[in-house]
Amino acid sequence: MLIAEVSKKFELSQDTLRYYERIGLIPRVNRNKSGIRDYTEEDCRWVEYIKCMRGVGLPIEILIEYVRLFQQGDETINARKELLMEQRKQLIAKMADMNNVLERMDYKITSYEQTIGKKEKHLI
């Protein structure tokens, strides 16, 4: 699959895909005879995984480390698991913070709706 197709499929710019490859966020993509990137299904799974993890805010540095460990083989399974468990813990804390903010927003919106409702009654 060419970079333009991968870009469209995952809604990432071609520059982003090249950047991810350059910094080691996705493994090196093979090139065809013309030197054009030729993404395999495995490459696309990496792109999807990285997009998913970045979408919830995992830091690039953590993901680079994960890819590096993965490329070292099965002897790094425990290290990869630990890395993901730590990120999971941080994600849960972030979600709790976001839920608190959401509750405050809901409270404010409800307060405004009640205020607007009272003013509309006075206009009748």
Rank of each mutant, 00 (worst) to 15 (best):
Y66E: 01
Q14W: 02
M1F: 11
M53P: 01
L69Q: 02
E65Y: 09
L17T: 05
M53H: 04
L91D: 12
M95T: 08
I124M: 06
K89W: 06
K51N: 05
V6W: 13
V101M: 08
Q87L: 12
N78H: 13
I36D: 02
R80K: 10
S111P: 06
R28Q: 07
A79S: 06
E11R: 14
Q14I: 14
L63P: 13
R45M: 14
R68N: 02
K51S: 10
G24S: 09
K118V: 02
E103L: 12
L2C: 05
T110C: 12
I124L: 01
T115N: 08
K81R: 14
Y39T: 00
D15K: 13
K9Y: 11
G55F: 03
F70W: 07
R22C: 09
R45G: 10
Q71W: 09
G55M: 04
L25I: 10
L91M: 13
T76N: 10
L17A: 04
K94G: 09
K121P: 05
S111E: 00
M95S: 06
E5F: 13
Q90W: 12
N78W: 04
G73K: 02
I64Y: 02
H122W: 03
S7Q: 08
K108S: 08
K33A: 11
E120V: 06
N99G: 07
I77Q: 09
R22W: 06
L12M: 15
Y112Q: 08
I50P: 02
L84N: 04
Y20D: 00
L12E: 09
M85S: 13
K33C: 00
V47W: 05
T40A: 06
R37S: 02
R88Y: 15
I77R: 09
L63F: 05
K94T: 11
Y66D: 02
T40C: 08
L17I: 11
E75L: 12
R18V: 14
R28K: 10
D38P: 05
K51A: 06
N32W: 00
C44E: 13
V56G: 05
M98C: 01
I92D: 15
Y112V: 12
N99H: 08
R88H: 15
D74T: 14
I26S: 11
Q90N: 15
M105V: 14
V56K: 07
A79R: 01
L2K: 14
Q14K: 12
R22Q: 14
E65F: 06
A79L: 00
D74N: 15
G24E: 04
F70E: 05
